[in-house]
Amino acid sequence: MKTFTFERATTPAQAAAAVAARPGARFVAGGTNLLDLMKLEIETPPHLVDVTGLGLDRIERTPDGGVRVGALVRNTDLASDRHIRRDYAVLSRALLAGASGQLRNMATTAGNLLQRTRCPYFYDTNMACNKRNPGSGCSAIGGISRQHAVVGASDACIATHPSDMAVALRLLDAKVETVKADGAQRVIPIADFHRLPGNTPHIETDLQPGELITGVTLPRPLGGTQVYRKVRDRASYAFALVSVAAVVQRDGTGRAAFGGVAHKPWRVEAAEAAMANGSAAVANRVFADARPTHDNAFKLQLAERTLAAVLAESRS
């Protein structure tokens, strides 16, 4: 690990200013992804700003009937919250499908959104990777690409976003609240928060340097039957090959978002009009622009069948 200096932030705005002031500086909270990447020297921040003392760890109702989740709420605590379990069950289920008990006790809401891809070529510093070393190429393209993106990818990067939680947040139309280095606050719809890789796969979110996530808000509960179904190579503690987050209402209408298929949680609102017509009608629309590799073409059928299972479960 490269050496770094360390400070504990006192306020969100001070934290943002401290990171903005030092090129390459990073926030740290749970540390479960960042420290792993620092040990491998994939991340080499010269300065860490510890934000765990900032509060931002409450789950509270908003005046419009929704809920606000502090950036530092741990994954276990968010999944366990009574209100979340009852009214946003898909979020609880998505969180519980991710990582291990120990990691969920450590990882935070904001950190989960900011976690980086588990593409093995991103992790292997001997390999070309435009995300780790911009301009070096992409070893995954033409490499072993079973885990990689089938839609929304580019000729520069076919990595997937690893988060389960983010798929549920995309389904629920969450908003990300931030504070910038100058103290200004803004709200970013989750759909715009993560970026597609394009020619700049190393730029993964809409955040500016030093911009700190302070919380995530959820609109009023959607009701319906809420399901998160994750398909993976082992029954627990593995990343998704494909996952589906869905809310299905009694009349068969609803929403669906997909994980494990793209550089960001993948949701095509226009396809949801076909929800009552079954999984194939939706999946054909959601994956209309898919460009799978030889290794991961199976994900298209898997995604459609997983959605079919989710729709069947919601009817039972």
């Binding site: 504990r8 740290v28 420290l35 510890d50 008990g101 120990q102 006790n105």
Partner: peptide, 15 residues
């Protein structure tokens, strides 16, 4: 009181 993996947290993060 909560179980964590001690390899993924820094001592300086645990005052």
């Amino acid at each position: 009181g909560r179980r964590v993996v001690s390899c993924l947290t820094l001592a300086v993060m645990q005052p």
